[in-house]
């Protein structure tokens, strides 16, 4: 209907990116660096952003309870590291175990969210926040045995960061790298991200996916059509949690460390920002929104840092970037609110 207005956030960010790109070329920052980093970042964070989609489309809202999913992923990875599984086997085992734990966490999480209709986002935020201290206690006391994971002074309890170099760090990043001149395209990583996107996309083309979208768009209608709303919402939560758990595995293997304790606390916010910048509208978020949003959001980070340091105005750049991202998110939310606030007239 009002397509051009709908895309203002993306246009603004893209314009800003183009401006920064121009600046980068002018300052002779090699373009290959920027592009290589942007591709890695896209795939590394993309799966986490993707994990918000099922819950958003089922009308539960943005999953600010992402820490729950992340903890499931961390648990999966810690177990594999503990059993000293390495390489591709290690990574696959971590992903599988993370997924199994995420199914359990997700079903409990979904059940809680079904009891708080209409206040899901704030509830999820607090579930996420309160889950962290609980897991902190777990990390500090869990009977893991691999000495490479334990506190170096006390000798028990997990370290806040666990190196993955000997297990599966960069396993996807270094899988099938395609080198074209100065550009290194991390095919393995991108392929994994693409497959995840494709799976989510196909899911929303299936009957269950459509039913889930219907629940998000019009719950009353979906109920009248004989769809089990609670189950759909729970399924969406489980899916989000599983994808989130896989997402943190991808993130960790690319980052090279598992970060425990308070690290998952704030992960939901950049993911939500990326998705909103991608132009997501509640109930109708597509994989394309995820890709565009993640790319724009993270490329902005990549460009603003070195550019600001070379221009010797680091504080200004930081302020400007924050202003722009948060402003764009506010705009995106206002826009989405406007559409929800006034439903399309019949004519």
């Amino acid at each position: 209907m009002n397509a051009p207005r709908q895309h203002i956030p993306q246009l603004v960010i893209a314009l800003f990116l183009a401006l920064m790109m121009g600046g980068a070329i002018w300052l002779k920052i090699p373009l290959s660096w920027v592009i290589n980093d942007a591709l890695v970042r896209l795939a590394m964070n993309g799966v986490l952003v993707l994990s918000l989609v099922p819950m958003l489309n089922a009308g539960i809202g943005i999953n600010f309870g992402l820490p729950v999913a992340v903890v499931a992923g961390l648990l999966g990875m810690c177990l594999t590291v503990n059993w000293k599984m390495t390489g591709l086997t290690g990574f696959v085992a971590a992903v599988l175990m993370a997924a199994v734990i995420a199914v359990i966490f997700g079903s409990v999480f979904g059940r809680i969210l079904n009891r708080v209709r209409g206040r899901e986002e704030i509830t999820a935020t607090f579930i996420g926040f309160s889950f962290i201290p609980l897991t902190n206690f777990f990390w500090a006391t869990a009977p893991f045995t691999n000495p490479a994971m334990l506190w170096p002074i006390g000798g028990k309890g997990m370290r806040p960061t666990i190196g993955l170099k000997s297990s599966f760090a960069k396993i996807l990043n270094d899988f099938l790298p395609l080198e074209i001149g100065p550009f290194v395209i991390p095919c393995g990583l991108l392929l994994f991200f693409a497959c995840s996107c494709l799976l989510v996309h196909l899911f929303f083309r299936s009957a269950t996916g459509k039913a889930m979208q219907a629940v998000g768009e019009n719950e009353g209608y979906a109920r009248l059509c004989g769809i089990d709303i609670d189950w759909m919402r729970q399924l969406a939560t489980i899916l989000s949690t599983v994808i989130g758990a896989v997402g943190i595995c991808v993130y960790a293997q690319s980052y090279g460390f598992i970060e425990l304790y308070d690290a998952p606390m704030m992960l939901a916010f950049p993911a939500a920002s990326a998705l909103l910048i991608g132009g997501s509208i509640a109930g109708r978020t597509s994989v394309l929104n995820v890709i565009i949003g993640t790319f724009l959001f993270h490329t902005m980070y990549i460009l603003s840092g070195p550019l600001a340091n070379d221009l010797l105005v680091p504080e200004m750049a930081e302020i400007f970037r924050l202003l722009l991202t948060n402003g764009v998110i506010l705009f995106a939310m206002l826009h989405a609110g406007g559409r929800n606030g006034k439903p399309c007239p019949a004519m």
Partner: peptide, 8 residues
């Protein structure tokens, strides 16, 4: 429109 259709 409220309970009858998926308007979008």
């Amino acid at each position: 429109s409220q309970l009858g259709l998926l308007l979008q």
